[in-house]
Design a protein around this nucleic acid. Structure first.
Lengths: 176, 176
DNA sequence: ATTATCGGTCAACATGACTGACATAGTTTT
DNA sequence: AAAACTATGTCAGTCATGTTGACCGATAAT
């Protein structure tokens, strides 16, 4: 599909002509816009479902990551979400009050509160994740595995180093 | 690099074995997380610069799209941002008060207010866009043009149909 | 002349972020 | 055992950014 020579990591080796193929200002602005619109459209369906239940995107994130890693501690959740404990507390307390999440005391360190989804929480998590998985499944199968690979590579390169380390740790089957 | 048969649009034709290669739940959750973290890290640097100037991400969006399309109308901006005119008004008024943006009356339709960046606005827009372009330029040159192509294909497939139409219109050089 | 559109404004409200100070329980260090 | 540190929670106040609903003036379209 594309048969031009690829610039390699040493940017000095690629001619300005090669660079122009995908490093021009216009092409980079296209990337910015694509990411903005894709993120907006991607979250829209889930946001709608959440607002029916008087929940917001912040609740979604908590439910998602607790479902992703049952027994996660509050500290670990804070590190993932990059928000303050006061912000998390409001959302988390509400989810506990409404019986989406339960806490249990850490068996080794009794200060910790290990978080788990209830059946109600797991059911909602599944609905929300299904919506987003379906969108990706459509995109992935429309475009094929080479596109998927490129997509994951570029997004991985956009990450901060510490985020990349975190993701490598929680997706051990993947290289990158 | 990848030599398996790709599942095509008709999902019935791909075996569960093929699907397992990139449509498994775990792989799709990886996509969700990658998008979440990439968006978060991608916006971080610009957010920092903005907060030094007592501006927020909403101001950034307005400045970006006015810089992208000088003379854009308020209506068009509303359609792009998917927010209410009251929300836009607060942000836009502030940007006009602080001399980042000027309005001029539409020459054909005098009801319209055509928006332009001032020198001050253009200077800020350049700084912000440079930050984000640099991040993409690094990712793009690290991973090469095939990855870029895949990245753009998948993001394009994630969009709602009307967003895709809009992007096609404003990036006429691109196929997709 | 009527109606519709573009843009702006006032008021009230919700969400989800922030800072700073402080509290309580439990763990670790000295 | 005492002191220091850590995990978590809470109170109080603030800010940014979104929402709804009502209404207005200027202008354009019918």
């Amino acid at each position: 599909m594309t048969d031009i020579v690829l610039p390699q990591k040493q940017s000095g080796t690629s001619s300005s002509r090669e660079k122009g193929l995908f490093l021009r200002r216009q092409e980079l602005r296209r990337a910015i816009e694509l990411l903005f619109f894709a993120y907006r459209d991607f979250t829209y369906e889930a946001d709608e479902l959440l607002s029916d239940l008087d929940l917001g995107r912040a609740h979604h994130r908590v439910i998602y990551f607790v479902g992703r890693q049952p027994g996660i501690t509050v500290s670990d959740l804070l590190a993932i979400l990059h928000i303050t404990k006061q912000s998390l507390s409001r959302v988390l307390s509400h989810l506990i009050d409404e019986n989406y999440i339960i806490q249990e005391t850490g068996p080794r360190d009794r200060r910790q509160r290990l978080l788990h989804l209830t059946d109600k929480g797991a059911s909602l998590e599944k609905k929300l994740t299904d919506l987003q998985c379906n969108r990706f499944a459509r995109a992935y199968s429309d475009r094929g595995i080479d596109a998927v690979d490129g997509f994951q590579q570029i997004l991985t390169s956009l990450l901060d180093d510490d985020t990349r380390s975190h993701l490598r740790a929680v997706h051990p089957d993947r290289i990158d």
